[in-house]
Simulated assay, not measured.
Amino acid sequence: MTASDGVDYTPRELDRGATFYVAGHRGLVGSAIVRKLESSGFENVVGKGSSELDLKNRDAVFAYMAEIKPRYIVLAAAKVGGILANSTYPVDFLSDNMRIQVNVLDAALAHNVERVAFLGSSCIYPKYAEQPISEDSLLTGHLEPTNDAYAIAKIAGILHTQAVRRQYGLPWISAMPTNLYGPNDNFSPKGSHVLPALIRRYDEAAASGAATVTNWGTGTPRREFLHADDMADAVLHLMEHYDGPEQVNVGTGTDVTIREIAETIGNVVGFHGETEWDITKPDGTPQKLLDVSKLAEAGWTSKISLQEGLERTVAWYRDHVGALRE
């Protein structure tokens, strides 16, 4: 199935009765997308966990795609982690993500999937990109060294979807979210991103009555945070309203310092001690604020405030603290 088949691929409301495969449906982003799709009336949302389907196994991916015959796919599956994990295991972050993406996208093409949304990350942009970061900043400078392997894999995924558009004319798109958080996040001390790591650290400190909490770096870098439910809403909106080769930034358009987000989290969890900063540890990129004007032009803006999102995420974390992955 290609554009030459005479099929009209103009973006429109997706068929709620069609099979919709969410790769990575149990993760932070994937689970939010499943919730959004089901609440929006989709009747056949499917997915398999990594214990049932290893997306790095090409034959298994092709066999699964042949079995379910999806009309739509969101590729949210990825090996993800924070500064420590990315710095320690760059080979894993490059190899695993490349194989996942190539297998799913190749299988989607082989089985004539009409609409695919590939999800990446704002880390694809140069470390010192002009702020706020526009989509055309891609490949214009050096990446942040602490997560360059992951970033290269995600850049390859963008180019893969663009290549499908050029060669086959299919309306596949890419969306690049800012820092995400919410239910089903990874709160592991060694594998989490900054916001869930801070939630766990401050909540444990509050529960134990600790006098201090120590965070990495200076606290001065600025970060933009988007709730996963907002991200899911944006992805469905883009699949129904956007058709273009360029990746679309997905964020709020506002940012805060790490010091500010730490203070807010401390207040939400009820921590009354002092915060110390280990300046011998890396800060990472100084600022990562996305230019979301393209997203706004497509008709979407974020709805969940940072305060509301943090309160909801802390509540979810406390409800599931005994069953979290380590």
Results as ranks from 00 to 15, higher is better:
Lys303Pro: 04
Ala85Gly: 01
Ser40Val: 02
Tyr64Gln: 09
Ala262Val: 08
Thr10Arg: 13
Gly191Met: 02
Asp283Thr: 04
Asp96Val: 10
Thr254Lys: 06
Asn184Met: 05
Pro132Glu: 14
Ile158Met: 15
Ala323Ile: 03
Ala63Leu: 02
Glu274Leu: 03
His193Ala: 15
Ala323Gln: 09
Gly284Gln: 02
Glu43Tyr: 00
Cys123Ala: 14
Val74Ser: 10
Arg312His: 06
Ser40Arg: 08
Ser87Ile: 04
Thr2Asp: 08
Ala149Thr: 08
Tyr125Pro: 04
Asn112Arg: 08
Ala32Cys: 02
Ala315Met: 03
Glu144Cys: 13
Arg26His: 00
Leu226Glu: 08
Asn215Gln: 12
Ala197Arg: 06
Met98Pro: 00
Ile158Ala: 12
Asp148His: 03
Lys303Cys: 09
Thr218Tyr: 06
Val22Leu: 05
Glu224Val: 03
Val250Lys: 07
Ser134Asn: 13
Gly244Lys: 08
Val268Ile: 13
Lys281Glu: 15
Ile73Trp: 04
Leu14Trp: 13
Pro171Thr: 07
Thr220Ala: 14
Asp243Pro: 02
Ala117Tyr: 01
Ser4Pro: 00
Gly266Thr: 05
Leu236Phe: 06
Gly209Ala: 06
Gly219Ala: 11
Leu226Arg: 04
Pro11Glu: 10
Asp185Ile: 05
Ile261Leu: 12
Thr301Met: 10
Thr285Ser: 15
Ile173Phe: 12
Phe93Ile: 02
Asp255Ile: 00
His193Cys: 08
Leu109Cys: 03
Thr280Gln: 10
Phe62Asn: 11
Lys79Val: 05
Gly169Phe: 08
Val80Arg: 06
Arg71Trp: 04
Tyr317Ala: 10
Ala153Asn: 08
Gly30Tyr: 00
Asn179Thr: 15
Thr212Asn: 11
Ala163Gln: 14
Tyr21Glu: 00
Glu114Leu: 02
Gln131Met: 13
Gly30Val: 00
Glu263Gln: 07
Ser51Tyr: 06
Lys154Arg: 11
Ala211Lys: 14
Asp319Asn: 08
His111Phe: 10
Pro245Lys: 00
Val256Arg: 11
Gly182Met: 09
Gly41Ser: 08
Ala206Tyr: 07
Gly41Cys: 07
Val268Gln: 02
Glu308Gln: 15
Val113Pro: 12
Glu260Cys: 09
Ser137Glu: 15
Asp233Ile: 01
Ala197Gln: 05
Phe271Thr: 03
Gln287Pro: 01
Val102Glu: 09
Gly244Arg: 00
Leu295Val: 08
Gly322Met: 03
Ala108Glu: 11
Asp233Lys: 04
Asp106Leu: 07
Leu198Tyr: 14
Tyr64Pro: 01
Leu94Tyr: 06
Arg99Lys: 15
